[in-house]
Computed example of a mutant assay.
Amino acid sequence: MKLKEISEVIIRKATKSDAKSLIDYLDIIGGESDFLTFGPGQFGRSVEQEEEFIQSVLTKENALFIVAEVEGKLVGNLNFSGGPRQRNAHVGEFGVSVLRECWGNGIGEKLIQYLIAWSKDSGIIRKINLRVRSDNTRGICLYKKLGFKEEGIAKRDFLIHDRFYDSIIMGLPID
């Protein structure tokens, strides 16, 4: 799929009714990329647990869970969680993913732009962090394009098929 072929991408907050679709989606993407923190069959939540997770995000002022849909099909998601205490509630980390069939259409970028706008409007979030595998050049280029800066390296952060990978820690100040 190319963006010009996609009639419309809808970015919206996740709801409890998305739980089953999200579980199905996560089972697919776990096998599509080694850049995620889980592989095929490793996500490890039931539909009920996913419903509870979504509900818990909806109750927090410094958390966001959004999905991307194309023609009613879930094709991407982004989850952001701010710190649990007053001293770190202003900062959080996110993860983002898009179905492989939709890569290159700007969907991940739209999800992150939504997060940045939401953070600015929140009055709470002052910094967004992420970790990206050091060999994920497409991801790193996207994050830099959106203003994220490299802040450090986490050595041996991923272990996939008995091989270690480093992660680059990146951040974006909001104010």
Rank of each mutant, 00 (worst) to 15 (best):
R163H: 12
R163K: 11
G123S: 09
F148L: 03
L172Q: 08
L146K: 07
G147F: 01
D162Q: 13
R156V: 03
G147I: 05
N136K: 00
K149F: 08
G152R: 04
K155W: 04
L172V: 04
I128G: 11
A117Q: 14
G139Y: 09
H161L: 07
K149Q: 14
R156E: 15
D162V: 03
T137F: 10
R156H: 12
Y143F: 15
T137V: 12
R126Y: 11
L159N: 10
I169R: 14
L146R: 04
E151Y: 14
L172E: 09
K120I: 03
K110F: 05
D135W: 04
F148E: 07
F158C: 08
G152N: 09
L146E: 02
L130N: 09
K120V: 00
S167M: 00
S122C: 02
I174M: 09
R138V: 06
G152W: 08
Q113R: 12
A117N: 12
R131Y: 02
S119D: 11
I174P: 08
F164R: 08
A154R: 07
S122I: 03
S119L: 05
E150S: 10
I168V: 13
S134A: 15
Y143I: 03
I169F: 12
G152T: 07
N136R: 03
I160T: 01
K149Y: 08
E151L: 10
F164K: 02
R156D: 12
K120Q: 12
I124K: 05
R126D: 14
R156S: 13
K145E: 05
K110C: 07
K127N: 14
R126S: 15
F164D: 13
E151R: 14
E150V: 09
L130K: 07
S119A: 15
F158P: 01
K145N: 07
G123N: 11
L115Y: 03
A117D: 14
I174A: 08
N136Y: 02
L159G: 07
G147Y: 04
F148M: 09
D157T: 06
F148R: 00
P173T: 15
I153L: 13
I116T: 12
Y165W: 05
A154K: 03
V132C: 04
R163M: 02
A154E: 13
I112V: 13
I153P: 00
K155C: 05
S167E: 07
Y165I: 04
L115K: 01
I160D: 07
H161D: 15
C141E: 15
K155S: 02
I168K: 11
L146Y: 03
D166Y: 01
V132Y: 06
I168Q: 09
I140W: 12
M170G: 06
Y114P: 01
P173G: 15
I168C: 07
D157Q: 10
E151H: 12
H161I: 03
G139P: 01
K155I: 11
D135L: 02
K127W: 07
I116A: 02
G152P: 05
L146F: 01
K145Y: 05
D121M: 13
I169T: 13
R156Q: 14
G152K: 00
K120G: 00
C141N: 11
S119V: 01
W118A: 10
S167N: 10
R126G: 13
